[in-house]
Design a protein around this nucleic acid. Sequence first.
DNA 1: TCGAATTTGTGCGTATGTATC
DNA 2: GGATACATACGCACAAATTCG
Lengths: 248, 248
Amino acid sequence: MEEPGQPAYARVADVLRHEITSGVWPVGGKLPSIAQLEARFGVSEQPVRAALRLLLGEGLVEGRAGSGTFVRDRGAVLRFARTRRPGQGGPLSSADVPEGARVAWSHSTERAFATAALAGRLGIDLGDPVQQTRYRCTVDGAPVQLVNSWEPLAVVGGTGVLLPEDGPLCGAGVPARMAAIGFTVTRLVEEVGARPASKAEVEGLRRAAGLVVLVVERSHWAGARVVETADIVIPGDGHRLVYELPVQ
Amino acid sequence: MEEPGQPAYARVADVLRHEITSGVWPVGGKLPSIAQLEARFGVSEQPVRAALRLLLGEGLVEGRAGSGTFVRDRGAVLRFARTRRPGQGGPLSSADVPEGARVAWSHSTERAFATAALAGRLGIDLGDPVQQTRYRCTVDGAPVQLVNSWEPLAVVGGTGVLLPEDGPLCGAGVPARMAAIGFTVTRLVEEVGARPASKAEVEGLRRAAGLVVLVVERSHWAGARVVETADIVIPGDGHRLVYELPVQ
DNA sequence: TCGAATTTGTGCGTATGTATC
DNA sequence: GGATACATACGCACAAATTCG
């Protein structure tokens, strides 16, 4: 069948992958247990686990302790529009969600002090005070986005917009809030990277270990000064960032 | 020292991570061998491996078979500018590379037929012929970008721009080539996702297994028609996509 | 309500083979 | 050949979640 040079776990994964994509195991259906797969393929536990780990990483299946391994719905892709057309969408509801889905945001703000990396991004000194706001976005109860936003206290301290989600400008977005205290946002840069999720991120997104995340480092500039920067963490599987770019 | 509740591999990883970030093992330096680490921490091979796998995933170290585990240069981040300011940069040299670095592109074009996914993206029928061009970008010999570009034969067939990298418009970019055959590109959309690299991608990028990649699905539209779409694959560690966005 | 069985997840000791230096 | 890292595989133990009698 397959090349004999292939390791056992790869053979098992190939067969299962083919069966999943060809519909032998329907979406939401339960795969045979590890013990059953051992018997079927005539291998021990480890190769079966390794094969399932592969499929797990590919987002094809999802393991539930005590229950089984299930075929995931991989048709559903959640798109986040990162560029906004004029007059469309609120500042925080950038999700392109299905009709009727419940989008919810929670947040908390606290005082913190700049680490070396953060100081570099904000153009301030190590240890300088910053206002840190954490956001969490859920769609139908499932967390889809973690945001960590920082603003130098030297910018927002003592103003009416110290708390981003409090007061008259709550939810109005960074440019509007900055405009209210005399800073005109002239530049918005997003740097996108990808990496394995940290333990905290896996928990925050209520996902399984081994998750890959997209990380957006967003910075709002007012002239030569960075007035806000944020880390936006989004699960890599089933999620996309959409950038609508100008054509020249 | 650490909490006793922590697993052995986490303790080993914590110690090594701290030693690396605090400079005990300099960038480019070699970590002790697995056998030495076993002896030092009093654990067996697997926990040491698990710890190194963690650091590997974090991009802190890099294993070379038969040689050792080395501390990576994590200061070097390669940024790809995905938005172009007027009059800057060629169509394919989007890398923000250090002075003097050698940027090289290789490519090959062939005839192919649309899969279901590709047909959906191009708005054509399953099995319709397409012109497929593969690109590979290297910086100082290290592969940093794999591109797979598809154009419907119904668009480019029989024209002078059938081969993107041949003829007078080679390297001129999609909008220019399309303009030459009467299509005005009106829309450029990039969808960014992240996932574990496939075997082929790991090989193409000459990297180790377990690599995480950024995937950009780019589409050029001419009116309501997609005239080109491409998958751009970039290693997730040490690489960033930079989007300069309009402020409204 | 309770407890046993099942199932996945995690951790770890061991062993073998291969490629590289 | 020896040391090394790496990939694969086996066996085992326990934890956590779920299912079911």
